[in-house]
């Protein structure tokens, strides 16, 4: 992906006679587009294979929207990110389906209370969690991102309440299942902000580095 985005930016910059800064920006944007497309395509393909397309997409969009402002753990390579991201997404979707057997109003209220209590506390305490590749040094920007994270979390809270109300009126159980997916997505994203989350995901990252790149070394 990095090679492809660099080659796109080199070609565009050469054709349009752009400077180095513009070329870097194009490479960065092209990489973002490729990563979003590839990640979403894999989630849809594997979601289809495991029969959890809608659940997986809800979890992906819940996590990535909150992640945009709250940050979190980052893997060491785009390949690991896409592979681990897809596996985690499928595992979370299957967990959501397993939990859906318990789904009723009381369960949703308890799950919602626990999820949002933990999420508000951790976001208030830790967000935004930046990375070495994109440090957030300005206090003003940190405050803005914390506020935006809180706003997104509040939007999820409103969606969760609307889902319960709609379920009470329509009796459509899928609404509760989608709500469970959203809660699981929030809990996962919150987990990636914590020290424990970083520790666990660093181990996952190390496992993939060993498994993927060790094999490349032998070629």
């Amino acid at each position: 992906m990095e090679r492809l985005s660099t080659s796109i930016s080199n070609k565009v910059a050469a054709e349009l006679k752009l400077d180095k800064d513009s070329r870097d920006v194009i490479a960065y944007g092209a990489f973002a587009i490729l990563q979003i497309l590839l990640s979403t395509a894999l989630v849809i393909i594997f979601g289809y294979l495991f029969n959890v397309v809608v659940e997986a997409l809800i979890i992906t969009f819940t996590v990535s929207t909150l992640r945009k402002y709250s940050g979190g753990f980052h893997s060491s390579s785009p390949s690991i990110c896409v592979i681990a991201g897809t596996i985690i997404c499928m595992a979370l979707s299957k967990t959501a389906l397993k939990l859906s057997t318990l789904a009723n109003c009381e369960f949703m209220l308890i799950l919602g209370f626990i999820t949002f209590l933990i999420a508000y506390l951790i976001i208030y305490k830790l967000a935004p969690v930046d990375s070495a590749a994109k440090p957030i040094k300005k206090l003003e920007k940190r405050k803005r991102m914390k506020k935006d994270s809180m706003l997104i979390l509040s939007a999820y809270f409103i969606i969760a309440i609307i889902n319960i109300i709609l379920y009470l009126y329509l009796g459509y159980k899928k609404l509760l299942i989608y709500s469970i997916c959203m809660h699981i997505g929030i809990l996962w994203q919150i987990f990636t902000l914590t020290n424990l989350g970083h520790m666990v995901l660093r181990k996952v990252d190390a496992f993939f580095i060993y498994y993927l790149f060790r094999r490349e070394d032998h070629k």
Partner: peptide
């Protein structure tokens, strides 16, 4: 604060706010 998934490439200097 980060990309869509779990990988963050280095941000170009001209896009940084600091």
């Amino acid at each position: 604060a980060c990309f869509y998934f779990m990988y963050q490439p280095e941000e170009p200097k001209c896009l940084r706010e600091d």
